[in-house]
Design a binder for these strands. Structure first.
Lengths: 243, 243
DNA sequence: CCGGTTGATGCAAATACTGCAACACTGCGA
DNA sequence: TCGCAGTGTTGCAGTATTTGCATCAACCGG
């Protein structure tokens, strides 16, 4: 284990919590000022941190570039690529794929009919875990700690009359989801949209979810539910590829 | 300059170009296999790379977490925060702020009327540079190399009858934008939406742009243009803060 | 079963890093 | 204007970490 890599990463994580000066960081890490200065100089040169005119260091832009590429190479995204396109062909609706990141859930792929109702692209965006099918499908299979991490920043904003707006209510819903092994978004985020979602597991536990979404006038929730067996088969195929 | 930091970053960049094995990387970097193995082990432990079962290394999830935080700490975003909220109060329309990243343009902030027409959130998403006001405002002030980098991945997809769909046509438009120091999106992406945008400069050159956007039935383009003097003043104030 | 490749690790030599000391620069207050 | 404190920056010898070698374990395919 490389001490220098670990230390660099710890410094970056510290800066990620909030901008800091050389002196602050040297005290935090019990390093001489000149050592910390050189370390930050190096990290800035490779774009991982950025020095403001005020003397504070913040995270650098190169991390943003790298994250885009990290996103594209996600195992789940690659494993699911063909399967969700096949699923879309059969069910005809928009299929979303969401991945569990460290403490958030993100839409990582989407298949929709180019000639159908056009949904605004959501790939890359964080899922609101408490009012989305995929969010609930993933949360249901997380332990308490995992749930807490994902829900830590939730504002519990009410989008529609159906939105779940408290942790207690969500936990009750998640017990049901865990048992039935699928989740629904029943007009909880947008009044005219609903979906059903199933979790995807790997040997490491739940890693994501896939959902089938429709405008209510096209397919209502009972109709969407008819797709659940195929969706669960699809999730199983993806899980196999993930190992 | 820390050799270990530079080398770690180069390895990460190499993996960012595509997944690779220990042996491939050890040959590329002319390191002994065991050295490269240890390096990757360290990078994996801090979440910057991830080893697949196949033995290939890809970028790690921690980069995605860090990029979100990097985004929140952007200098431009902080400098512009109060100014664009004041601008919104005066003009009443949705105000967008976009930043030039390394080779892309991203929406980094937005102010809209909570009781007005609700536009789906775009923060964090890449701007399509060739058919957006902010994209054109930034491109106009970039040199040839910068433009090429930003436009490298453009598909020139045609969204409406007004979309610019070739580099030549865009370059002609950018000459006009550069002269007049503002840009417009005249129904080029969405038929019922248009906006005007102005660039924001720092001592390093153009770093972003701000725009005022409206649905056509609410305010048409000539009406939006009346906001340009105030927008340009706002951009100037932000530039001053950036230094 | 055998051979080749990859995953993984102890050790001494090689290399890189570190704190010290010092200087340059900037901003603030007297 | 001057002095002081704090930050930015760098050469050098002592210290710490890394490196390649050698080796073993595990896995896969013929």
């Amino acid at each position: 284990m490389s001490k220098s890599v670990r230390r660099a990463a710890l410094i970056i994580d510290s800066i990620a919590e909030g901008p800091k000066t050389v002196v602050e960081l040297s005290q935090m890490f019990e390093l001489h000022r000149s050592t910390m200065f050189r370390e930050l100089q190096s990290l800035e040169e490779v774009g991982y941190v950025h020095r403001r005119k005020s003397g504070q260091y913040t995270l650098g832009l190169h991390l943003i570039s790298l994250s885009k590429l990290a996103f594209d190479n996600l195992d789940l995204r690659e494993a699911a690529h063909d399967h969700i396109r096949r699923l879309h062909k059969v069910v005809g609706n928009t299929v979303h794929l969401a991945a569990l990141m460290e403490s958030s859930i993100v839409y990582v792929d989407k298949v929709e009919d180019p000639n159908g109702v056009r949904m605004y692209s959501r790939i890359g965006k964080a899922v609101l875990p408490y009012c989305s099918g995929v969010g609930k499908a993933i949360l249901a299979d997380l332990d308490e700690g995992g749930r807490n991490a994902v829900l830590a920043g939730s504002t519990w904003e009410k989008f529609t009359e159906h939105t779940i707006t408290s942790r207690d209510a969500l936990d009750r819903e998640l017990e049901i989801v865990k048992k039935q092994r699928w989740a629904a978004d029943d007009r909880e985020f947008e009044d005219f949209v609903n979906c059903v979602a199933v979790p995807i597991h790997s040997s490491m536990g739940v890693v994501g979810a896939l959902s089938v979404t429709a405008i209510r006038m096209v397919q209502n929730l009972p109709q969407l539910k008819t797709h659940l067996p195929l969706m669960q088969q699809t999730a199983e195929l993806i899980s196999r590829e993930l190992g």
